[in-house]
Structures are given as C-alpha cells and as structure tokens.
Computed example of a mutant assay.
Amino acid sequence: MTPEVLSHYPQIQELHVAEVVNYLQRNRWTAINYSNPRLLVFEKGVDDQGKPIQIVLPSQDEYEDRPYLLAKVVNLLSVLESVPFQEIVNAIHADVRAS
C-alpha cells in the first residue's frame, strides 16, 4: 500500500513522532546529524547497493506532512522486518506502553 493511502489510516493518524523515535532507538537505529532541523534522520544497515538505509521523520507532530512521513516509515519498517504494517504499528504502541 502506498504512503499516500496509509497516511489516512487512523493507526497512522494516532502515531506521534516521539513514539516512532523511541521504537527506532530501541531497535538500534542511529540518529544522524542532518542539516534541516525540521527533519530527524535515522540509519541502520545498508541496501543492496551498499548505501545506508535511512528513515526520515518530521521533528514535530505539528507539521502537515507528519502522517505521510510516518506512513512511509511504517511501510519501510514493514518491508525491512518482513511483517505486516499493523504489526509495526502495534510494536510502536507496545514500546510506548512498556516505557
């Protein structure tokens, strides 16, 4: 499913940037310095071409593109971890409840 479609799902609308950041940190994604303060960038591993796999998040929940960027993140994590989209969302929420 495309991030455009996923961004309208209630599960994505209810996610917060801090929850996703917590999930990424717990799963050993590394925050990298990025020149645009409106974005948070994380890296982990490399792709088939040897380039770092990156996840880009808005730095605040208030940004208009938050649902789209979070949908992209959940979609990418779903592919990388070979699990359904909803399992990623559930894991992000489980991390919040465990904290």
Rank of each mutant, 00 (worst) to 15 (best):
Q13I: 13
S7F: 00
S7V: 00
T30R: 05
Q49L: 13
Y34H: 07
R97L: 15
A98D: 06
Y9E: 12
I88D: 04
V46S: 13
H8K: 14
V46A: 14
S99A: 15
E62N: 11
L70T: 00
N75H: 03
V17E: 06
N75R: 09
A31Y: 09
V46G: 05
D61I: 01
V79T: 12
N36E: 06
L69M: 04
D48I: 06
E14L: 06
P52N: 13
S99F: 11
Y23T: 05
Q11D: 13
Q86P: 00
T30G: 02
E4W: 04
D47T: 04
L15K: 07
H93P: 13
Q60G: 04
I32Y: 06
K72E: 15
L57A: 04
S7N: 05
H8C: 11
P37I: 08
V73A: 15
I12T: 02
L40N: 01
A71C: 08
I88L: 08
N22R: 15
N22C: 11
S59F: 04
K44P: 09
Y63V: 03
E64M: 08
P58N: 05
N36F: 10
V96S: 11
M1N: 01
L69C: 02
P10E: 14
P3I: 00
V89Q: 01
V74M: 04
R26N: 08
I12C: 02
Q25P: 10
A91R: 15
L6G: 01
E4L: 07
F85N: 07
S35V: 09
M1F: 00
V41D: 12
Q25K: 14
V79K: 15
L24C: 13
V46I: 09
